[in-house]
Computed example of a mutant assay.
Amino acid sequence: MEGTIKKLGQTEIYRGSRVHLVTETIQFPNGKRAEWELIQHPGAAAVIPVDADGKIIMVRQYRNATDGWTLEIPAGCLDHPGEDPLECACRELEEETGHQAKKMDFLYKFYSSIGICDEIIHIYVARDLVKTEQSLDEDEFVTVEHHSLDALLEMCFQGVIMDNKTISALLAYRYKYKL
């Protein structure tokens, strides 16, 4: 059912360094109102780095949400509202993997968790990589691994890789490039 939905107000609950939690008062077309919680996020960019052998460079890092180590494509938050997601993707590629790309192609973008968060993640494919050096933040502990697309997709279906941006990006990459 479509119609006019109005946001009547917003109350900030928490303001962190990366995310903000607000409640919003919403009025629906039938006149009823509701209070909805929303996590506000500046957005992010992620990249599928493809090496000269066609393998994908992945990063293994600790994630607090899982209380464990995860295997993911390199990614990071936009530094500020309005930052070009391509610049963010290039920065994160070099920081986390120690590579720059001569060619970066936009693949797609998506809401990370549309029911509760306004974060949009922009996905790129990096090719023609040049080795540089990792430049990790002081709170990042990242190891770099190279895997075939088939092996990574199998890890997704086995539940080894459970990160949504990585799973959807790998599937989109396979679909778009008919691999």
Rank of each mutant, 00 (worst) to 15 (best):
G43F: 00
A44R: 02
A44K: 01
A45S: 15
A46R: 01
V47W: 02
I48N: 01
P49R: 07
V50W: 07
D51W: 11
D51S: 09
A52L: 06
K55T: 11
I56W: 10
R60V: 10
R63Q: 14
R63W: 12
R63E: 15
A65N: 09
D67H: 13
D67W: 11
G68L: 07
W69L: 12
W69Q: 10
T70D: 13
L71P: 11
E72P: 09
E72D: 15
P74F: 02
C77V: 11
C77R: 09
C77N: 10
P81K: 10
G82L: 04
G82A: 07
G82E: 06
P85R: 00
P85N: 06
P85H: 01
P85I: 01
L86E: 14
E87A: 12
C88I: 04
C88D: 02
C88K: 03
C90I: 08
C90F: 04
R91P: 00
L93A: 08
E95T: 10
E95F: 09
E96P: 11
A101T: 06
K102L: 12
K102V: 05
D105A: 05
D105N: 07
F106R: 00
F106A: 00
L107M: 14
K109G: 06
K109Q: 15
K109S: 13
Y111C: 03
Y111H: 10
S113E: 12
S113D: 15
G115A: 09
I116R: 05
D118I: 01
I121P: 00
H122I: 02
I123C: 01
I123F: 00
I123L: 05
I123G: 00
Y124E: 03
Y124C: 03
Y124S: 04
Y124A: 03
A126W: 00
A126S: 01
K131E: 14
E133Q: 10
Q134Y: 04
Q134P: 03
S135W: 09
D137S: 12
D137H: 15
D137F: 14
E138G: 01
E138S: 11
E138Q: 04
E140T: 07
F141N: 14
